[in-house]
Nucleic acid binder design. Structure first.
Length: 740
DNA sequence: TATTGTGTTATTTTT
DNA sequence: TAACACAATA
């Protein structure tokens, strides 16, 4: 142990001067006092952060005294890996995570201080919306006249700005829902408390409330976190800023890394102002600029710099590189979105076959997610493997959410939102009328739906058939609750999914997507094997956005520009550079100059993702809402320096679709090879036959991760009855045991 | 209560 | 286009 440490120590001090440039060393070395690192794209931001953490650790600070926050799980994971590779085990105990995960961790410790229990549920957007709709109906507010989504947006905005209902002033109130928007916010918060739930915004907002109301708790954390590091500081909103300021107030050892030119979350409440006024907030702050770019060729870098220089609201940096000039940016004007996809597909094929480029190093970055569709269709036909990142997220799929809801209710019967979701899935004959009566009872007595049902059953207020159904369901949940003790999370979930009839519901479904849904469910069971407890899993599920694509398969990545932040690729395609699409119309309509500048930053982010090859495309016609609309090339194209771009004329050598195809669907200019499904999440599982699928029979000696060794006594289907040494007889699904 | 049909409406970006 | 809400029917 000691030896390892000394070895790392040696490595660190050695690497500092070897691996880092001067500015980077500056940023890593001065660990005390406030520091702002302005890190341009590709200037080694993550490197600085990780070396800095290593350096702080080497100065004798305990890992648990360091707080490092990021925005995405991806970034947190990346940082954690890199710190481990620098200092090994010495980083254990570091508080490194997203704002939300850290906020949640702190909130669980002090939940009572804001009227929650520490096992509160974290609800997502759809739950939020459902809640708002309920409150609207209580207040007799017409959903047609007032869009519940708008109300949700208002509440989220208040939360982003660190405003609890009591802090909302007349100035902050937007006239909505007949002047009731604040009242609804109050109701919403109190409903959340009854449900023992918190939304994303609450994770930090409650922290702030706790810190403000309980100076001794705040003091504890201030003492604890000697050093604070913040990634992507340009994207912090007011709430996050307040949270950081509270924590950093005492020691003032806060290091924020960011790039005002990459601030692209203004719509989510991010305040570039936070970065612009850092020096004022933390007097005596040092500022280090990282301006040497290690990523892109000079053609790419120059184009990006010139484009972003059109923005007025910026601190200003001059990025430079010693990299060679490289190829100019290729600009392609196409007839329509289909042609655009086809051009990219052909270029990808050429790069792959002629230049032997790997698909992993290519990405298509779009402005809005609907644009991914044209590429999916085209690539599917041609057999180009691709993955859409962040498209429909795994945990947001209906079947996954349904099963998670079953788990939620089992773990926490009072989770009414989850119960409401699955009370009639599969169909049990519980319709809106019954639901309404339950809901009324729970409002009347201020109890959960689960409790209401129990109460109403005892009072005999249901029709016999419904009473039977509900009482069975309640009994099921109670019984499943008992199972937790004896089973792994995966087994437990699988049992519930089967016994509730949820699996058979999809098995009986003859529709096309049913099999895919079953596959997803299988994948969920698989993913669950990593977790020790239900609570652990539920926490993970609420905070992670996508199932981790650990697969290093050779695929082209397709994602939004927002999702691409922090990533880099050899080859990047930027399609859809048309007025209205990019810059997006709404962005300009809603926030004029600010909006346009944010769009330009988005373009800057896109361009700077590319290491070597960059393609920008613009289509003259695009299908929007199923109708073709013509548009003109994006103004951003004109803002690129001529000397960095090469215009490619498609009319030579390519078949150019005739305008007549405009309103028809039929016209298809590319040959159609046999359909090929490259990327759908289809982990194939053997379909369970009549015998134990894994081939176990009575007498087989097996081992199980939780119960140890045992012997098979009996089985039916894939359910094994096993006598475990010292554990007694358990029912286990055969996939979870191994023959020994 | 479940199913089917019709009309409306939205597509920015996400932890 | 496609998802969704709502009304009309079985």
């Amino acid at each position: 142990m000691k030896n390892i440490d000394t070895m790392h120590e040696y490595n660190i001090s050695n690497s500092l001067s070897k691996d880092l440039n001067e500015a980077q060393i500056d940023a890593v070395k001065q660990i005390d006092g406030p520091l702002l690192v302005l890190a341009g794209a590709g200037t080694g931001k993550t490197k600085v952060l990780t070396y800095r953490i290593a350096n702080i650790l080497m100065s004798g600070v305990f890992p648990s005294q360091i707080l490092a926050v990021t925005f995405t799980n991806k970034a947190a994971k990346e940082m954690s890996n890199r710190v481990v590779s620098l200092v090994g085990e010495r980083s254990e105990g570091l508080w490194l995570g997203t704002f939300h995960s850290i906020g949640s961790r702190i909130l669980r410790r002090h939940a009572e201080a804001v009227g929650l229990k520490s096992n509160f549920t974290i609800i997502d957007t759809s739950d939020q919306l459902r809640l708002i709709k309920q409150i609207f109906s209580d207040h007799k507010i017409d959903e047609k006249r007032w869009d519940p989504k708008k109300q949700l947006h208002i509440i989220n905005t208040w939360k982003d700005r660190g405003l609890t209902p009591d802090k909302v002033t007349a100035n902050d109130i937007i006239d909505f829902a007949g002047g009731k928007s604040l009242e609804i916010y109050e109701d919403y918060q109190s409903r959340l408390r009854t449900l023992n739930a918190a939304d994303f915004g609450d994770l930090l907002l409650h922290n702030i409330t706790i810190f403000n109301d309980n100076p001794e708790i705040l003091a504890d954390y201030q003492r604890k976190f000697q050093y604070i590091l913040v990634d992507e500081y340009q994207d912090t909103n007011v709430g996050q800023y307040l949270w950081l300021r509270l924590l950093a107030q005492k020691n003032k050892n806060i290091c924020c890394v960011g790039d005002d030119d990459q601030s692209i979350y203004g719509w989510r409440g991010a305040e570039v102002g936070n970065i612009l006024r850092f020096e004022r907030d933390f007097p005596g702050a040092n500022v280090v600029r990282l301006e040497r770019n290690y990523r892109s060729t000079s053609h790419i870098l120059s184009a990006a710099s010139n484009l972003i220089s059109k923005n007025s609201d910026r601190l200003g940096k001059t990025l430079w590189t010693e990299d060679n000039e490289g190829d100019p940016i290729k600009l392609l004007l196409t007839w329509d979105d289909k042609e655009e996809a086809k051009q990219i597909a052909e270029e990808i094929e050429a790069l792959q076959q002629i230049k032997r480029h790997s698909l992993n190093n290519m990405a298509i970055l779009v402005r809005a997610s609907f644009q991914t569709r044209a590429f999916e269709e085209c690539f599917m036909n041609r057999g180009i493997p691709y993955k859409v990142i962040g498209g429909l997220r795994f945990y947001e799929r209906m079947e996954i959410k349904d099963i998670i809801s079953y788990i939620r209710v089992t773990a926490q019967p009072d989770d009414s939102l989850a119960l409401e979701r699955i009370i009639n899935t599969p169909k049990r004959g519980i319709g809106p009328t019954t639901l309404q009566s339950i809901y009324e009872t729970s409002r009347l007595y201020g109890i959960s739906m689960f409790e209401s049902i129990k109460l109403m059953l005892s009072e005999d207020s249901f029709k016999p058939k419904i009473a039977k159904t509900l009482s069975d369901l309640i009994k099921d949940f109670v019984r499943w609750g008992e199972l937790v003790k004896d089973m792994t999370v995966a087994e437990f979930t699988e049992t519930i999914a089967k016994e509730s009839g949820y699996i058979s519901m999809w098995k009986q479904d003859s529709s096309l997507e049913a099999q895919g849904r079953l596959d997803n469910i299988k994948e969920l069971f698989h993913a669950l094997e990593e977790f020790e407890t239900i609570e652990e899993f539920l926490e993970h599920v609420s905070l992670i956005s996508d199932i981790d694509n650990l697969n290093q398969d050779n695929m082209v990545s397709i994602m939004t520009l927002h999702a691409a932040k922090g990533l880099e690729f050899d080859t990047v395609f930027l399609p859809g550079w048309e007025e209205g699409t990019f810059p997006h119309q709404r962005s300009i309509d809603e926030s004029a100059k600010t909006g346009l500048e944010e769009e330009r930053r988005l373009a800057y982010v896109g361009i700077t993702r590319a290491r070597k090859n960059l393609y920008i495309l613009s289509a003259a016609n695009r299908r929007i809402y199923g109708q073709y609309q013509s548009s003109i090339p994006s103004r951003f194209i004109e803002e690129l320096p001529q000397e960095n771009i090469e215009k490619i004329n498609l009319n030579n050598g390519f078949n150019f679709p005739a305008p007549s195809s405009n309103f028809e669907d039929g016209a298809n200019y590319s040959p159609k090879p046999s359909p090929y499904a490259p990327t759908k999440k289809t982990t194939s599982f053997s379909k369970s036959g009549k015998t134990s699928p894994e081939g176990f029979s009575v007498g087989t000696k097996v081992s199980h991760t939780k119960f140890g060794n045992g012997i098979v006594l009996n089985f039916s289907g894939d359910q094994l009855e096993i006598a475990f040494e010292g554990m007694g007889i358990k029912k286990v699904i055969d996939r979870y045991v191994k023959a020994v």
